[in-house]
Each structure stands twice: as C-alpha cells, then as structure tokens.
C-alpha cells in the first residue's frame, strides 16, 4: 500500500495518515451515534423502571422468532464485512466486491424479515392506537419498539446502500479496493449491528418466562 494516487485524497499528505484520519473521523461520528441511541435507551430505562410489568407484557407480545433470526443474520453479515476489510488490506478487488455485496444481501434479508414481522405486528394491533390489546404503559413499550426498530432499520438501509455503492464501484474498477471508504463503511456496519444486539436484548427477551 504505497501512496497510491487513486487512494490518497486531498488534503491528506499520505495514505497512512488518511487511513488514520478516516478511522478517527468515523469513530467520532460513531460517538455521536452512540449518544443518539443513548437518548432513546434512556426513555426505555426510565419507563422500564416505572412500569416493569407493563414492559414485560409488551416484550412478551413481540415475536422472538423473527428477532433471533434477524440477530443471527446481522452477526453473520458483520463477519462477512470483516472479510471485505481483509480483502481491502490485501488489495484483492474480487474479495472486496463480493464481500461488500454479500454483506448488503444479508442486510436486505434482515429488512425482509423485519417487514414480515412489522406486518404481523400491525395485524395484532400492536401499534399504539384504538385497538391496542395491552394496558396503557405497554403503549410506551411499543412506542419505543417502533421508534427504535424504525431508526435502526433506516441506519441499516443507509449501510446497505453504502455497501452496494462501494461494492459496485470496486467491481467496476472505479475505486481501488484499498480505498479508505471500505474501512469507514465497515466500522459503520459493525456499529449498526451492535445497536441491534442491544435492542434485541431489550425488546425481545424480557418477560418470556411467564413470571
């Protein structure tokens, strides 16, 4: 990895410096994202503290099957993303393109499953509204459910678009496989994955033991 003119960008002096800068900039942005989701988790924490039973009954009404499948999908996609980054480090165009597009495919699968789950939720009137089947504070739980999974899905969609865009550009030789954008995209992808892990634990798992 020399100072390849197709990788180094203005105003960076060297590729190494640029790589460092891109990783640091991305982490700074992720710090911001952590707080974005942190604000949402705060509403969960406060209301869960105030209404533990209602939150358990809300959780029990979600579909753990879909949730678990989706978690597995995302974990796998993250693993494939690490291979894309490895390909980028060794400069192999084919590996980067293939892994980026596969990662995106797993993301799409996640969204498809999520769509099925949403359809069922709407069918069961789990959107807070006139026919909502649970006690009022469980409405707070489902408000969280819709906002959190919705915001996460939008993040994932952005990740998918970026992965497809980069994968195609690398495949078409419009972009060097060593591009620092690959690392930035992978950091973002893993982050979105880790948000889901926390949401999974908060949304799907509590209140299932019938206690």
């Amino acid at each position: 990895m020399s100072d390849d003119p197709s990788v180094v960008q203005f105003p960076w002096p060297t590729v190494a410096r640029q790589r460092e800068g891109v990783a640091f900039g991305m982490w700074t942005f992720l710090g911001s994202e952590i707080l974005f989701f942190g604000g949402l988790l705060l509403t969960y924490a406060v209301y869960r503290t105030l209404y533990p039973q209602a939150f358990n009954s809300g959780s029990a009404a979600t579909d753990i099957f879909y949730g678990t499948i989706n978690t597995a999908l995302l974990l796998t996609s993250s693993f494939i993303m690490t291979m894309a980054l490895r390909g980028s480090e060794s400069g192999s165009r084919g590996v980067v393109a293939a892994c980026m597009l596969t990662t995106a495919a797993f993301g799409l699968a996640f969204l498809a499953v999520k769509g099925l789950e949403y359809a069922e939720d709407i069918d069961k009137h789990l959107v807070p509204g006139p026919h909502f089947p649970l006690h009022p504070p469980a409405r707070l739980f489902f408000a969280f459910y819709w906002v959190a999974t919705g915001v996460h899905a939008i993040h994932l969609l952005v990740g998918i678009l970026v992965a497809v865009f980069l994968g195609i550009r690398v495949a078409l030789r419009q972009m060097a496989p060593e591009s620092t954008a690959i690392e930035a995209a992978s950091l973002y992808w893993h982050f979105v994955d880790s948000v889901w892990i926390v949401l999974y634990a908060l949304i799907y798992l509590p209140g299932r033991s019938g206690a």
Binding site: G31, I34, L35, G38, V46
Partner: peptide
C-alpha cells in the same frame, strides 16, 4: 478515547437523569 468518552457521556446522561 472516542469510544470511551461516548460511553462516559452516556453514563452522565443516565446518571444525572436517574
């Protein structure tokens, strides 16, 4: 440091709110 300070700030948000 980026990752750690984000977590410290989450702690701050939760701690003072609670």
């Amino acid at each position: 440091l980026c990752a750690i300070s984000a977590f410290l700030w989450i702690l701050l948000l939760f701690g003072l709110t609670f």
